[in-house]
Amino acid sequence: MSKNKFPPKPKYDPDTGPVYLYGIHTVRAALDNPRRQKRELLVTPNALMRLKESGPVAGVKQRETTPRELDKLLGSEAVHQGVALEVEPVSRFGLNDIDPLRLIVVLDQVTDPHNVGAILRTSCAFGADALITTQRYAPRETGVMAKAASGALDLVPLIEVRNLGDTLELLKTRGMRVVGFDSEAAAPLAPRTGDEALAIVLGAEGKGLRQRTRELCDEMVRLDMPGPIKSLNVSNAAAIALFAATSARAK
């Protein structure tokens, strides 16, 4: 591994620049993903030792760096733990790549990368087969999203679709029941008692699901909250929805 033979890289723009993943768990998952194209591993000696404890790092161009250089590159708020991996965006899947489909999470124009990352992590924890986002009004892959996902970005298939309505119709033809979440829905969320294949549809905070999306759902449910706060972050709502969807399966 080279030792600072190159000048520090300029601070990158997460909206337009290369994709940097950072943090031990996030980088480890990317290194273990054969579908992920890796460009360069920027790593401190201590972080390299930690990475090697959990698996190989061979076959990737490496460059020794310092925490200060990583702060300059990623920004002082990035919790990088001494490692950053420059990568190509994760390979997108298509619905035909996933078979069988038992549990899918669908996001209707959720744009916050923290929320999408957190939902990816929760989807992975509850065994979802994939996460579907819209091609427009969805966040670009960034280190922020990957860090919030804690490795799940390289573990849960991510599907990007142009027309969400057509996709929901396709999910129905493949035997899935489409369940949408809306605070004004008539029926409350209840644990599922069967083993039916489910597509859980969540909308952006504030706007919720679009009208066309609601119309295509087989049922609409709400989260009943007895406390003084009547709404949740969409990533928290996703966790509750996935628990309810999978509780009978776990038993």
Results as ranks from 00 to 15, higher is better:
residue 92 R to S: 13
residue 94 G to E: 13
residue 95 L to E: 03
residue 95 L to Y: 06
residue 95 L to K: 02
residue 95 L to H: 04
residue 96 N to G: 12
residue 96 N to H: 13
residue 98 I to G: 03
residue 99 D to V: 13
residue 100 P to E: 07
residue 101 L to A: 09
residue 103 L to Y: 03
residue 105 V to H: 02
residue 106 V to L: 08
residue 106 V to F: 04
residue 106 V to D: 01
residue 113 P to F: 02
residue 114 H to E: 14
residue 116 V to I: 08
residue 117 G to A: 08
residue 118 A to G: 12
residue 120 L to G: 00
residue 121 R to W: 06
residue 121 R to H: 10
residue 122 T to C: 05
residue 123 S to M: 05
residue 123 S to Q: 06
residue 124 C to T: 11
residue 125 A to Q: 08
residue 125 A to V: 10
residue 126 F to D: 02
residue 127 G to C: 10
residue 128 A to E: 00
residue 129 D to I: 08
residue 130 A to M: 10
residue 133 T to R: 10
residue 133 T to E: 05
residue 135 Q to I: 04
residue 137 Y to A: 13
residue 139 P to L: 10
residue 139 P to E: 11
residue 141 E to G: 05
residue 141 E to K: 04
residue 141 E to M: 12
residue 142 T to F: 09
residue 144 V to D: 01
residue 144 V to W: 00
residue 145 M to W: 01
residue 146 A to W: 09
residue 147 K to F: 07
residue 147 K to L: 13
residue 147 K to W: 09
residue 148 A to H: 00
residue 149 A to N: 10
residue 152 A to L: 08
residue 153 L to V: 11
residue 158 L to N: 02
residue 159 I to G: 09
residue 160 E to W: 06
residue 160 E to P: 03
residue 160 E to S: 15
residue 160 E to Y: 08
residue 163 N to G: 10
residue 163 N to L: 12
residue 163 N to E: 15
residue 164 L to P: 08
residue 164 L to M: 14
residue 164 L to H: 14
residue 167 T to L: 07
residue 167 T to E: 12
residue 167 T to W: 07
residue 168 L to H: 09
residue 168 L to N: 08
